[in-house]
Design a protein around this nucleic acid. Structure first.
Lengths: 232, 232
DNA sequence: CTTCGTCAAGAGCGGTGCTCTCGGATTTTT
DNA sequence: AAAAATCCGAGAGCACCGCTCTTGACGAAG
C-alpha cells in the first residue's frame, strides 16, 4: 500500500509543482496582485475549483511562491559567496551585494513579493522565516569571518551604539557570532542600505535621475564595506 | 455666468475632495489593493458608476492619493527641517530622518504606496514627480548648506566615485548645488539607507529581531551623517 | 465486490473595474 | 423666456475575481 499511496502522492506532488510553476510565470508577468487562481487553472486546462484541492486558498499559493523566492535568492547569494576565496571578505561582500541586485533585477516581481509592500491581509506563516534568512545568514558569516580573522577595522567616526541596543545585538549575533555591538549596528546599516538601493532602483525612485545604476551600486556598496571596516 | 459656473465647479470640487478623503480612509484601513471604487461609492451613498464622472479610472484615483501622500510627507519633512536652527545641519538631517520615519509609521499604507512595490499596470503620470521630490529637495538643501558653509568633512576611507557617475551627479546637483561628486554619491547612499531602514521596519523585515527600532534608527542615521561628513 | 477517499467539473454567491444608456436637472445660448 | 447644449446620477450589464458546495466518476483497500 506504500507504493500505491506514493503513486497517488507522486501525481499530486507533480501537479503542485506544475501549479507553482505556472503561478510563478504569472507572477513574473502580472505581479502579485495579478496572480489569479482562475487564470492558473485555465493555463492548466483545469477548472478553477480543482486548484483548491491543492492550495486551500490564494494565500497558500502565495506562501509557496514566497518560500520559493527566498530560497532562490538565498541560493544565488550562497553561490556568489562560495565562488569567492574565503579570505577575501570584501570580495565576498561585494559578490553578495551584486547577487542580490542581479537576482532582484531578473525577478522583479518576486523581489517585490519578498521585500516590497506586504500583501494586505496576508500574514506570513512560520514556514517562511527559515528560507527568509538564508541570504542574511551568508552575510552574517562574512562579517563573522572578517571579525574572527582580524580583518575588520571599523573607522572611528561613528558614536558607539546606545546600551539599549545590546539585547537586539545579541539576537543578531546568532548570525554573526562574537561580533561586537558597534559592528552589529553597522552591519545592519550596510544591509539595509543594500536593500534600500535595490528597492529604489526597482521601485522607480531612480527614474529620470540615475542612469549608471550598476556603477553607483558598486561604489556605494564599497563605501558600505568601508563603513563596516572591511579592507577596501 | 462666472458665478454660476463656479457654483457647479464648487460642488464638483467638493465631491472630488470627499471622494479622495473616503478613499484615503479606505487606503489606511485596507491597503492599496483593497481600495475599491464601489466601496467608496457605497460610503458616499452613490452608485458606483457615478464615481467615474469624477475619476475616469481607479488609477486616476490612485494618482490623486499618491500626489497627496507625497505632499503630506514633503510637508512633514519641510516642517521638521524648518523647526531646526539653520546652521545645525546635523540636527536638520536627523530631524528629516525622524520625520520620514514617523510619517511612515503613522501612514503605513500611504508610505507603501509611495515607496513600496509599484502597483502592477500602474504608470505614474508626470504630475507626481514634482510632489515626489519635495522631501528630497529639503535633503538637498541641507547637504548644500553644510557644504557651502564648510561644515562637511567626509571621512577619507571611501574610494572616489568612478568618472562615469559624473553625469548622474550633475543631475543630482540640481537639488544640492556645488556639492562635489563624492559627496553626491554618499548623499545618495545615506538617503537610500534612510528609506531602507524605514522600509525594513514597515515591511516586516525587523520582525522577531529588532525591538528598539527608534534607537537603532537614530544611531544608524547618525552613522550616515558621519559618512556624509556632517559633524556628529 | 463493495466501500471509501480523492478528484474534476459545474453551478452559484458576492465582489470587482468599467461601459453604456437613459432620463432629469442645470447651465448656456439664442 | 425658450431652446439647445451640457452635466450628472441611476441602473443594467459585461467579464473577471476568490471561494463554496454539490455531483458524479474513478481507483485503491477491505
Amino acid at each position: 500500500m506504500n507504493v500505491s499511496r506514493t503513486a497517488r502522492e507522486r501525481v499530486r506532488a507533480e501537479l503542485i509543482r506544475e501549479i507553482t510553476d505556472i503561478a510563478r510565470r504569472h507572477l513574473a508577468t502580472e505581479g502579485a496582485s495579478g496572480l489569479s487562481l482562475r487564470a492558473v487553472a485555465r493555463d492548466m486546462g483545469m477548472v478553477s475549483s480543482a486548484i483548491y484541492r491543492y492550495f486551500p486558498s490564494r494565500d497558500d499559493l502565495l506562501t509557496a511562491l514566497i518560500i520559493d523566492g527566498y530560497n532562490a535568492l538565498g541560493e544565488a547569494v550562497e553561490d556568489a559567496d562560495a565562488a569567492c576565496p574565503r579570505e577575501d571578505v570584501t570580495g565576498r561582500w561585494l559578490a553578495v551585494c551584486r547577487a542580490v541586485r542581479e537576482w532582484a533585477l531578473a525577478h522583479p516581481h518576486e523581489y517585490a513579493l519578498l521585500y516590497g509592500s506586504p500583501v494586505p491581509g496576508y500574514r506570513a506563516p512560520l514556514d517562511t522565516v527559515a528560507p527568509a534568512i538564508r541570504d542574511t545568514a551568508v552575510y552574517g558569516r562574512i562579517v563573522a569571518d572578517a571579525h574572527r580573522e582580524g580583518r575588520l577595522s571599523p573607522p572611528a567616526f561613528c558614536p558607539p551604539p546606545p546600551a539599549v541596543l545590546a539585547g537586539d545585538a545579541e539576537v543578531v549575533r546568532t548570525l554573526m557570532p562574537d561580533v561586537p555591538d558597534d559592528v552589529v549596528t553597522r552591519a545592519i546599516a550596510a544591509w539595509t542600505c543594500l536593500f534600500g538601493m535595490v528597492s529604489f532602483e526597482l521601485f522607480g525612485q531612480f527614474e529620470n535621475t540615475i542612469t549608471h545604476r550598476a556603477e553607483l551600486f558598486d561604489h556605494n556598496m564599497t563605501c558600505m564595506a568601508a563603513l563596516l571596516g572591511l579592507p577596501v
